[in-house]
Design a protein around this nucleic acid. Structure first.
Lengths: 106, 106
DNA sequence: TTGCTCCTCACGTCACGTGAGGTGGC
DNA sequence: TTGCTCCTCACGTCACGTGAGGTGGC
């Protein structure tokens, strides 16, 4: 698949993928005769995975480390992340209440 | 109050306040003979307010615009923000579920 | 030659973090 | 003079956004 096709399929920008490559998280698996970047199924899955981990709140650096981690380490990292996400969830809920209170007073 | 005192009281960094000043959102209200920056009660409240609006998800630029907005405009902006925060809340909840599923499978 | 699509830099953005170098008074 | 605290730059960081300039084939 070309870069554009992968981007459309996964829902990331070309520039984001470029960022992933710079961080050493993926690589194009080939190029067409015209120089277009190509990605195979594995690379596309990898890009999808990077995006998911980003949404879980990991930085690109952390994602790189996790790809080299054991299952135990990955599990521990996910558990820490769940705690962070729960805190974030509480914070967001609180902000919704605060904003609604402000609206009431206007 | 000195900058340090304000930072300690409000819970922001000196560098953050410097960023607020650069964005035109606050100004030191004076300086001591030693050149230390001073902030009065009003300035401190302003810094607190900036921090709150940031936590509601507004950028510094938006916060500047809101300070010059009418109550109607502010209300509308807050309502839009509540919608965004609700979406964010849903997203975070989903991410918690995804992470927990990943943990189960390890 | 023109138009189209894609490529590879590389500076810009946002909200600070993190020193660097300098100052004033005990 | 040394130590301490604070000041004002100014480059660095993170994850891209946004052009700029160039290429290949219809």
């Amino acid at each position: 698949m070309t870069l554009r096709e992968v981007c459309d399929a996964v829902g990331v920008s070309r520039r984001a993928v470029q960022g992933y490559e710079k961080a050493g998280l993926v690589r194009a698996t080939g190029k067409t005769s015209r120089g277009y970047l190509l990605y195979d199924e594995g690379a596309q899955q990898q890009i999808k995975k990077i995006k998911l981990f980003q949404e879980l709140g990991f930085t690109l650096k952390e994602i790189g480390a996790l790809s080299r981690a054991t299952d135990e380490e990955l599990k521990a990292a996910l558990e820490r992340q769940v705690e962070k996400l729960k805190q974030e969830s509480g914070r967001v809920g609180e902000m919704i209440r605060v904003a609604q209170e402000m609206i009431e007073r206007l």
